[in-house]
């Protein structure tokens, strides 16, 4: 039996696991966007905070994912359900690209444009929302793209703590020493990653200034 046949035969389960996978990734990216973009903006306003914030996000990313899942296990409420725990861990991983790209995107806006805006009497808020943010948007989308692709990969490991997703097949296949089962999880996950990468890449190009 080859992989295609396996997937076709178990298509209900494949779809279920894909949906779980998408839920883990989608929820964590949404949370990371809600936290990471404001944080990225904040550290352009308070440069003193930029080193500790970026450094902190950097350190989180160096923690191996399996260890991070384990470390969060004793947390109250979060640790009570595997998917909460997985979402939190994935959110933490996604923070660095989001904070960093928001920060560099805004910092990278042509200083002449910012100065012109300020010199014309734009308030800080007007400058941010009318000039800096729109001009940084494609760089920020690039951050979301990196974070999403990363999350789709890391989310497969969430199956190890029982959070479901396409990692189920991978771990099941490993236990059964069955490559077809492993591939039934790996191939859809890879397809999701490629899909996310191209669609967000397209969006990024469309929003690029100039």
């Amino acid at each position: 039996m080859n992989v295609v046949q396996f997937i076709l035969q178990n298509h209900t389960e494949v779809l279920e696991l894909t949906a779980e996978h998408l839920w883990l990734v989608g929820a964590s990216i949404a949370l990371a966007v809600l936290v990471g973009i404001p944080l990225g903006i904040l550290i352009t306003r308070w440069p003193l905070l930029s080193k500790p914030v970026l450094g902190g996000a950097n350190i989180i990313q160096t923690i191996p994912s399996l260890a991070l899942f384990g470390l969060l296990l004793p947390a109250p409420w979060i640790g009570a359900r595997a998917d909460r725990l997985a979402i939190l861990a994935l959110t933490l991983y996604a923070l660095l690209p989001l904070i960093r790209n928001t920060y560099t995107g805004i910092k990278g806006v042509d200083p002449a444009v910012v100065e012109a805006g300020r010199g014309m009497g734009m308030t800080d808020r007007q400058l941010l929302w009318q000039v800096e943010f729109p001009l940084a948007l494609s760089v920020i989308i690039a951050g979301i793209r990196v974070a999403t692709v990363l999350s789709i990969g890391v989310a497969t490991i969430a199956a190890a703590i029982g959070a479901g997703g396409l990692g189920e097949y991978i771990f099941r296949g490993l236990a059964m020493v069955n490559n077809q089962v492993i591939l039934a999880g790996a191939i859809p996950a890879a397809a999701l990653a490629i899909l996310a990468d191209t669609s967000l890449g397209w969006l990024e190009k469309r929003l690029a200034p100039r």
Binding site: D110, A112, V113, E115, A116, G119, L135
Partner: peptide, 18 residues
């Protein structure tokens, strides 16, 4: 207020590209 009553033109122009 001050800045809005003072027009400002710079060499790099600084037009908003978007």
């Amino acid at each position: 207020r001050l800045r809005r009553m003072i027009g400002y033109v710079i060499q790099e122009v600084g037009l908003f590209p978007h």
